[in-house]
Structures are given as structure tokens and as C-alpha cells.
Amino acid sequence: MPTSHIFEVPLRLVSAALTQARAESPRESCGLVVRISGDLVYRPCRNLAEGHAHFHLAPEDFARAESEGEVVAVVHSHPNASPEPSEADRVMCERWGLPWLIVNVPVGHWQVLVPSGYRAPLVGRPFSHGVLDCFSLIRDHFAEVVGIEIPDFERPDDWWLKGGNLYLEEYERAGFADVTGQALREHDVLLMQLRAQVPNHAGVYLGADVVLHHLQNSLSKRETYSGFWARVTRKVVRHRSLC
């Protein structure tokens, strides 16, 4: 089985992770490797995510593990899929700054992913809500192209169907001002409404009638802005440093 030159995984921990993964399949399981008094132990955690395709490790479980010792790795399963890291795995591994142990069930293969400075491409990235979605794309565009860090916000699955209004409630706190009705400029953010009661999609205007955005169940892409996307735009906001 594969190992990492940076993080060696004892087989007993892999076995413990696989036991949990088989018990929780077809949902993804998750857990933590914790160093306690010099020994590595596995701590199963709760997955709070809706659906089977991803995981959201319970914050209380992480806090409990931290109270026991040093958290040294994150673990999750890929039921009925290769343990090869997904694009979302690579992004989240960087965000956590910890090695990830990925186990496959039912076969039992596993792989270790370590932080390496990876960045998902702005165009062609797959969709994973809360990790690689339209808001993540806006944040990454501003960080990589404009040099501006935009704060992240918690966004549960289907927040727009559960009384949430993320974009309209948070754009000012993120450093943006309403410029709806003014001539569009490069890096303006377009807040759009798709089959919802509130704006639930957004993209970055790149100039020359082009928008960069990321729709659910598709790859991020550049696309002509006029026509449909202009019709569903409800507000245009501009970072205050660019006003």
C-alpha cells in the first residue's frame, strides 16, 4: 500500500479508518489522526454533510481531538471510488494544512495526500459546494489576479432554499459596494438569481462582455455575459479598493 515520505501511516490506523468507512458506507466517513503522549491514535468523527458525496467534519469532534493531543492528519473515505484525491480534496488539504488519508471501500485501497501549495485552476475546475463553487471562484480570482483577499463565509448546501441570503447580506462585509446601473468594469461581481427567491449565483466580469463563473454540476468557465446572464443579474457590486 502507498505511504507518504512526509507522513507515515501505521497500518493499524488505516485498518481503523477502513472499519469506520465500511460501517458508514455509502456515506463518506471522516476522522482524525491524533498524537497523544507520543502515540498516534485514530478518532472517528461525525460527518455533518448532507448527501453522500462529501464530508463536513463536526467542529465539536475536531475540538475534542485537539483537547486530547496534536491533530496530525485528516481522514475520509471514498465509497466505491478510487482513493485518488479529487480536486476538492487537494484544495481542502491546502486549506487545512494537514496530510489527508483517503481510504476506499469496499476494496480497501488508500492514499496519503500532503499539502504542496496546490491551487485549483480558475477555468476548468469541477464543482464542489463550499469548496469549489461560484463564491470560491470569486475569492480565488481576487486573490490571484487582483491581489485582494476576500473573507470566506459558511454556506450550507442549498442555503438559498433554507432562508439564506448570503450574497445580499454579506457583500458589504466582504468589502464591496453596490454599483448597479453603472457601466461595468473589470473585476465587478455580478450577483445572479437562478430558480430561487434570492441571488444564489455570482460571477466576475472580465471585460469585453465576458463573465467568469462556476455553475453547479459543471466546470468553471468564461462565457459571454450578455443575454441570459445579464437578464438574471440582480445586483452588481465592486470592491471598494477598485471604486
Rank of each mutant, 00 (worst) to 15 (best):
A23C: 01
L212S: 02
Y167M: 15
S128P: 03
V34L: 13
F176T: 08
V9H: 04
G69L: 10
L18I: 13
A120H: 04
P44K: 11
F7W: 11
G207V: 04
V236G: 01
P151V: 00
F7Y: 14
P106W: 02
V112M: 05
A81G: 12
V237W: 07
H129E: 07
E70V: 11
S128N: 14
H201V: 12
V71E: 11
Q216S: 15
V210Y: 00
R231M: 14
S15I: 03
H129P: 02
P44G: 08
R46F: 00
D188Y: 02
S77P: 09
A63W: 08
S77C: 12
H129L: 07
V237A: 05
S82E: 06
R185A: 11
N80V: 12
E60W: 04
S136F: 14
I36D: 03
L161K: 13
R155N: 10
Y205K: 00
S67K: 07
N104A: 15
V74R: 14
A81K: 13
G69N: 09
L215A: 13
Y205C: 00
P151M: 01
T19K: 12
V74K: 08
F153G: 02
L40N: 05
V105Y: 06
G147Y: 05
Y42L: 15
V75R: 06
W159D: 03
V72P: 08
W160C: 14
